[in-house]
Design a protein around this nucleic acid. Structure first.
Lengths: 331, 331
DNA sequence: TTGAAAGCGCTAACAT
DNA sequence: ATGTTAGCGCTTTCAA
């Protein structure tokens, strides 16, 4: 590969002049500019970004860390983050953690080694937050409290839980089930929705059971298994609340065992990703504002990278309820 | 951030010695090693990867280029590719092209500027293949012929089209519709399945219509629109073939207008991503071997990066038919 | 066993 | 308007 020196030599000028032509900074005579440009063309010269990165001490790459890209919520987050980063002049590096802390630490290391300029953390594992606190490098959490000094953008999950509960209550549900992730593994406001959901149900005297789930890959059929477990353990279930894939699996299972939706069972999904859009009957969902989450987290990380002060460390974005057939909306 | 010089100074040694301790190459006295290690710990030193990248002329990053990450097929490809790359010591950089060539060229530029060591192209746009041919840098296409010297891994779409056709024929379909991407935009063997599908149908005297689709974002509801178009234009339709999301939307629409599946309409999806797994009735699909595609493309790109000769430039992987309710499999 | 020095390819300050 | 030089932080000869 040709270097800037090669170009300089061929054009009979110094490297700095070539650099000037390339960057447009500084003066360079028209005639010289043309000679340099010709040498560039002839040698098919392209500047080496690694050298520039070293000089400027930045890579313009941001790591986006998710437990598993193939889960719809994370897919859409990464997609939206990539779009926003790209618009801000950065590239996104996807990093799967598979819910394992060892991976998470490996990605932290990439930040220390300055492979990436910053990290957007949308992973849902691990404790041991001290590492993050003491890094003093650009990190933003999505739905994830990495420590009190580390910025975080999250949806308003309390309201989300309440909206879901109220929707099922308004349908007259008496025996509801929610699919709940294991709390000890998660450091996220995401759980709050389940706490609120249960509280509202209890307040209204409605029976509310929780079915434990594990974030897992599709390969394990864990969604289908959880759905079966719910209806086997609690056959009287007439209302279901859970993350998109669990709600979808519950709908699928309920239909298979001959329950009518929404007459016998009503379902509210949480997240409201595009995956839910293909269900019949239509799936009611509490929708997270994925684009806004992505946009805000990117705004924060780029501000941090550029050394700007953040106006607020924690941003909470509103969720919305999208009513469909699964709660009798007739839409 | 501390540099190797800082560590060297603090430990009272030269930079080369610190480098030796770090890399494990060369001799270094036990006592010196300990002193250096202590300085490293005290300064929280982490090597700067940008400097190493410059020295070694490699970034260990591979770009994975897709039209839009949020489409299930590409999601799963990127997910699987990330896993395989990670295992091979590389990081994946996701790049959305939004079906626009300008983005594609921008990512080609990243390869030239040596930001990435290689590119795996799973995007489906563009013509003008000369750029790729003359790059002489590591590129691998997934389902995409970038030129005759550029390696490509693809599923056996001819067989895929035939399997789908035969499945619908065996269900007794007489009026089938397939959703077809606009050919002029695509440089891919992916189209072959539609050609074969139609040919088989014609051979058996079955009416086969094509509904044009556009690869588009979810936001446009293009899937639902295409589904409605199919059943409006061809009300007698009793068999449908199309990519996952189109097949799913067709199922959804058919159910909404009161058609029974599979009694009135049978459906075969193409790709067989996890997205299809949540449909009721269960969705029959021709499944692409996504993991193998990812694995093979990663093997090829890493071989190319390491300067190895490829044994074969083109790899075709077998597809499989997964029978479910939508073609009356009763599963 | 270790240090000094050169160089990876680029940019910017400083001369001229 | 342009060339020379000194790094960016690392690794690797080459000497000692």
């Amino acid at each position: 590969m040709a270097t800037i020196q090669d170009v300089a030599k061929r054009a009979g000028v110094g490297a700095a002049t070539v650099s000037r032509v390339l960057s447009g900074n500084g003066y360079v005579k028209q005639e010289t500019r043309e000679r340099v440009q010709q040498a560039i063309d002839e040698l098919h010269y392209t500047p080496n970004e690694m050298a520039r990165n070293l000089f400027f001490r930045k890579s313009s790459i941001v790591a986006v860390i998710v437990p598993e890209l193939a889960h719809p919520f994370f897919t859409e987050i990464v997609n939206a983050v990539e779009v926003a980063l790209s618009a801000a002049g950065y590239q996104a590096m996807v990093c799967n953690t598979f819910y394992e802390q060892s991976y998470e630490l490996r990605y932290i290391d990439m930040l220390k080694r300055q492979i990436v300029d910053g990290i957007i953390f949308a992973a849902h594992t691990s404790q041991g937050l001290d590492q993050y606190q003491n890094l003093h490098r650009p990190i933003v959490g999505i739905d994830r409290n990495l420590g009190k000094d580390i910025p975080c953008v999250a949806a308003d999950h309390e309201t989300g839980g309440r909206l879901a509960a109220e929707e099922l209550l308004s349908c007259g549900c008496k025996n509801v089930v929610q699919f709940v992730g294991r709390k000890e593994r998660v450091v996220s406001s995401y759980d709050r929705r389940h706490v609120v959901f249960e509280k509202v149900m209890k307040q209204h005297g409605v029976s509310c059971h929780s079915v434990d789930i594990y974030w897992r890959s599709f390969a394990s059929d864990s969604f289908q298994k959880s759905a079966a477990e719910a209806f086997t353990k609690y056959p009287e279930t007439d209302g279901v609340f859970g993350a998109d894939l669990y709600a979808m699996a519950a709908m699928q299972y309920a239909l298979q065992i001959g329950r009518r939706i929404p007459e016998d069972v009503r379902i509210v999904a949480y997240d409201g990703t595009n995956a839910t859009r293909f269900m019949t009957p239509g799936m009611t969902a509490v929708c997270q504002p994925i684009e806004e989450i992505a946009r805000e987290s990117v705004r924060m990380i780029t501000d941090l990278i550029q050394g700007k002060e953040l106006q607020q460390n924690n941003i909470t974005l509103p969720v919305t309820l999208r009513r469909r057939d699964s709660t009798g909306a007739g839409g």
